[in-house]
Amino acid sequence: MPMITYREALHHALREEMTRDERVLIFGEDVVAYGGAYGVTSGLAKDYGEKRVFDAPIAEGVIAGAAVGAAMGGLRPVAELMTINFALLAADQIINHAAKVMHMFGGQMSVPLVIRAVGGGGAQLASTHSQSLEPMFAHVPGLKVVTPATPADGKGLLKSAIRDDDPVLFIEHALLYRVRGEVPEGEHLVPLGKAAVKREGKDITLVAYSRMTLVALQAADLLSQEGIEAEVVDLRSLRPLDTETVLASVRKTHRALTVEEAWRTYGIGAEIASRIQEEAFDDLDAPIRRISGVEVPLPYAKNLEQAAIPDAQRVMKAVKEIFARTGG
C-alpha cells in the first residue's frame, strides 16, 4: 500500500467521489485558487470545472445553509468551512436545519451533505482558532460527527460520509495533514459509527479520537517498554458512537482511560466513562480516568499552549497512577 499524507488521502477521497457521482460538488472558503486552507481541494476545480468546485464568500451561515438547500435539491454537497471555530457562525444551520430536516418534516426528506472543518490546537493560533468543539456538535441528534486520526481513516470515512444520506460534520485535525500512513488505493470505505482497535493490549484501554489517537499510541509504545500493554481504541466517529467496541475492550483489560483534546467538562471522555460504568461496571478494576485539554482558552505562547494540550507523558502518568492504585 502506498504511504501518503492525511491531506493526500482526503484529496483522493474527494476526487474519487466526484468521479463516481456527478451530484457531488464542493463549495466553501478558498477551495478554488487557494486549493483549500490546508490544500485538500488543490487542483480539483481545474479537473472538475468551476461548476462543481467553487468558492463561497467568507460567510459561514450561507455556506452551511446553501449546503442544506443543495442537499434538499438533490445534490450531495461537500462544504468547506475552513475551521471548526468558524462553524460557530454556521451552528444555527447545522443544528437547527441540517440536523432537523429529516425529523421535523416527518421523514419526507433527508439531507446528504458533508461539512468539512479543521479542529484542534497546537499551531499557535491562539484562542479563537485552536478549539476542539466537536463535543458541542456531537451532542445533537440528527447529526453525524466524524473525526479521523489516520490517512486511511481520513479517506475511508470521507468517502463514506459523502455517500451517507445524513448530514455529516467531518472534523479534520490541523496537525495531521502531513502525517503519513498506508492508504489503500481506490475503493476504501470505513463505515461511520464504527470504532477501531488501533493497538491491542491486555492491561488497560485508552479511548481516544482524532490526533489524540496518535498520542495514545505513542504512550502505549512507551508503556510497553515498562511492561504495561495498553489497548488503544480510536472512536473515529463521535456520533453515532460505537460503545460496543469500547466495552469489549474494557471487558478484556478491566481499566480505562479516555484521552481527548477537547475540554473535560461535559466532554467525550465523560460520555465514554459514563457508558462504561453503566454497561461494564462489574468488569472494572479501577475508576475510569480522563485526560483532556486544560480548561482554558488556548494561549498563543508555545510553552503555554503545549501545557494545555494532552501529550504522551500525561497519558503515561495517568496510566501509572491507575496501576499504582490497583496494582498490576
Binding site: G61, V62, A66, V68, G69, M72, P77, N96, H97, F105
Partner: peptide, 27 residues
C-alpha cells in the same frame, strides 16, 4: 412545498442552495 422554517431569516440560505441545485441539475 419545502417548509415552514422557524428561525427568522434562516431559510434564505436554503433557498440559495435549492437554486444552486436547480441550476446544477438543470431542473
Amino acid at each position: 412545498f419545502y417548509g415552514g422554517w422557524a428561525i427568522v431569516g434562516g431559510h434564505l440560505p436554503l433557498a440559495v442552495g435549492l437554486g444552486l441545485a436547480s441550476n446544477t441539475l438543470r431542473k
